[in-house]
Structure formats: structure tokens, C-alpha cells
Amino acid sequence: MSILSIEDVSLSFGGLEVLSDVSFSVEPGEIFAIIGPNGAGKTSILNVISGFYRPTKGSVAFNNKNMDRLSADKRAALGLGRTFQNIALYHGMSVLDNIKLGAHSLLNTGLFSALFYWGAAHKEEIRLRKEIEEEVIDFLEIESIRKKPVGSLAYGLQKRVELARALAMRPKILLMDEPVAGMNAEETEDMARFILDIKEEHNTTIVLIEHDMKMIMDISDRVLVLNFGHTLACGTPLEVQKHPRVIEAYLGQKKG
């Protein structure tokens, strides 16, 4: 049974068709990569899954449950974690608060208990802190920066904090938009290791967009290739690599 299935999704802005009839499904516990040239509609498909864009046509189901009517925040609460292409951390908060924010949907504190901060609200914050320290901060090795404002961090670390925030959501599916874009070889390797660990330790399903082909071929179980909003191919990394239409799109058509 698929954990996530996208059926015949089309999306257009004004007259511009960004996605046309894209369908695929993601199995529980796999690393599913979406690749394609710039403007292929990769981020758009993540935004459709997250509920940020409403598709013009088609539907998205999570655990066989249709999500089309759910707003983005409700989908997040169901277990859709997300990281962004252009880091979307909150610069007014420390690293720790950014990560805590990820756990928003898992907490119960309401407006009134927040204002009084007695009993339950206080206990919840202390429990949250402990969980985050043990499961996220430890895991991603960011103990030393937890009190820093996020704006002061290097790019690679910001990407890592963003992953930490997404992990604090305890996602069932983690949607990652270019997790290693702009990173050097060492940082890329670290990130690849984290992604594999997340998959293995928490059995989290991962959907990621990436341009780094080496990493994609190394870590992903299946790959979807998009071009101008159309599906070119979908299969294991090896199958995709050999697919004639993919070769054509990436390397150009042989003249002859």
C-alpha cells in the first residue's frame, strides 16, 4: 500500500501550465527522488503535496486518505514534514526555538494556558525540550549552536537546522527541496548520511528534490524524472539512468 499517491495532478498559473497529468506513488519507508531540469515543476509538485498550491486537476492521497480538502497546516499535522529550497527559517528566533516551532502540531498548549504558563503548559515545554535535545539536536550534532540566532549561521548549518525543524514535526513523510544545494562535498556527504539515518532509524518516508545526481543515484530507492511539467520516467536509479527519454532530455538528441 502506498503512503502517498498523486493522481493526474495538473497545475497552471494563468495560462502557464506548470504540471500536467503527473501521477506517481511513494511506498512507505522509501527514499523517492524527483529530478528534472530547472522549471520542470519539481518544487510545484512538493507545494501541491504540502497543500500550498491547489492543483487545477487531480488529487493527492496520504495513507489512502484523500487530502484535497485539507489546508497546509492540517496536512503538516498529519505528518508531512518539509524543508525548503531557499532556507525558510525564522530569523527572529534562536536555533532552538526554530526547532521547537516544528513541533507545533504535536503540542496542546492553548491561548489561555500559554498566557498563564502554569502546570501543563510549563511541563509540556520542558518535555518538548528534552525530546528535541535527545532526538533531534543530538542526532544532527548541533548542540553547540542551539542558542544562536539562525541568521548568524553558515549556510550549511542553516540547512541542517531546517532539517532539524522538519524532524521535530515527527513527519511520516519528509519532503525535502534540494537539501544539499550549494553545499560542499563534505557537507553533502553529512546530509546524505543524515537522510539515510532518518529513513533507517524512524522508518520515515522521504521525498526529495535534488540536482546532485551522484547523491540521488546513491541513496534513492526510486526516481521520478520531470520535464516541463510532464513525467518522463519513473523507476529505480538504474532504470532511469538508462531510459532513452531521460538521456535525450539531459544530454540532448543525437543528430543523425
Binding site: 489546508s71 525558510a88 527572529g92 521547537k100 516551532l101 507545533h104 492553548g110 500559554a114
Partner: peptide
């Protein structure tokens, strides 16, 4: 002060800094 020790205050700041991604983090705007 209490407000900003909890998820309610964090949600406020998230909305100020980037309201779109805040929604994707599970905050009902």
C-alpha cells in the same frame, strides 16, 4: 512574557518572519 515561552508565541513570530512557510509547519494562520 509567558506567551513567548510557548508554541503560541513561537507561532506569532513564525507568522511575522515567513507566514507561508509557517502554514506548512502546521500553524493555522
Amino acid at each position: 512574557r509567558n506567551l513567548f515561552r510557548t508554541r503560541v508565541g513561537r507561532a506569532f513570530i513564525a507568522i511575522r518572519d515567513r507566514d507561508i512557510s509557517a502554514e506548512l509547519m502546521g500553524i493555522n494562520l
